[in-house]
Amino acid sequence: MALDDPRTSPDAEALTLRYGAEHPAEIFSNPTIAGLLAHRSVRAYLPDPLAPGTLATLIAAAQSAPSSSNLQLWSVVAVEDAAKRARLAELAGGQRHIAQAPVILLFVADLARARLIARDAGAPDEGFDYLESFTVATIDAALAAQNAVVAAESLGLGTVYIGAMRNQPEAVAELAGLPQGAVVVFGLVVGHPDPAHPAAVKPRLPQSVVLHHETYALDAQREPIARYDETARAFQTTHGQQPVGWRALIITRGRNAAALNGRDRLKAALRALGFALK
């Protein structure tokens, strides 16, 4: 392998942090890939405000993500007000980092704008009643948000996604002043990580579980999942957590409706917020 081959990677440590011992032997390496491998969810923040221009930079990055048919069926509500962030933390089950950080970005699956355009033109808007339209809006929002995460981390900022914005979607929609046909599908906390409480790179499933060649293989996943469970236990022990492993997280989440923390009624909430989901 040539010395200038990008696979002569200095990122063995980064790969070990991301996968444990069961990591690819070599990958291409550059600053973008190194930044992606180093991603971690930050749950402890300094209260310092973001530098001027930061929010516009993150949204520019978000808007540079792909959008299905260029429909751009998403929006963002940036919440900086301390009282509102405290309320959102409460709605999310007491996640203090929402109140700690200077801003949370509420990513909105937004069919309200599309309906406005159609109705102003006197055109029918039945197509937006279908599950496909909501799915496109949600995917667009997720793609945009991940671009914002990469941009934020490149600026030395920390982020963490907040799926618990779906615990009480009507209350979140009211706080954000959303019209019918718009819903917050997740939040994204952005801020300066607290150096006193550094976040860790969490190991992921080995590629032998998630990467399938030509056809999907389910039964072959058992052994690498069992090995990953041990990697997860070791990580949890090292970071002062209960060493329950990874499979226990899956089992707990799928046990019953109560494990969804209110999201078992998401379909009803979405319909109340103006999504027919035909």
Rank of each mutant, 00 (worst) to 15 (best):
Y216K: 13
A112E: 00
L58R: 04
G93K: 02
L205V: 06
G177M: 06
E126L: 15
I59T: 13
A259N: 06
A217W: 08
A89D: 04
Q168K: 08
A258E: 14
I104R: 02
A268F: 04
S68T: 14
A200P: 04
I225H: 10
Q100W: 01
R166A: 15
R271S: 01
Y216L: 13
P66M: 07
A234H: 12
R87M: 14
F107C: 12
A141H: 09
F28Y: 09
G93Q: 05
A83I: 12
P198Q: 03
R227P: 09
P52C: 02
L266C: 05
A44H: 15
R7C: 02
V103K: 02
S133T: 09
I162F: 15
P102K: 05
F107N: 00
L73C: 08
Q100F: 01
V185H: 08
I117V: 13
F107S: 08
Q207G: 07
A226M: 10
A269W: 01
R166N: 07
A272W: 11
V77P: 00
G94M: 06
H23E: 01
K278V: 07
L218H: 10
A99K: 09
H239Q: 07
K202Y: 00
L155C: 06
P10W: 03
Y19N: 03
P198E: 03
S29V: 13
K84P: 04
T238M: 13
S9G: 10
E174H: 15
L211Q: 05
V183A: 05
A99L: 07
D229A: 00
A269H: 15
G274F: 04
A56S: 08
L260A: 12
R247D: 08
K84V: 10
L211K: 14
K278S: 07
F275M: 06
A141W: 10
R263V: 11
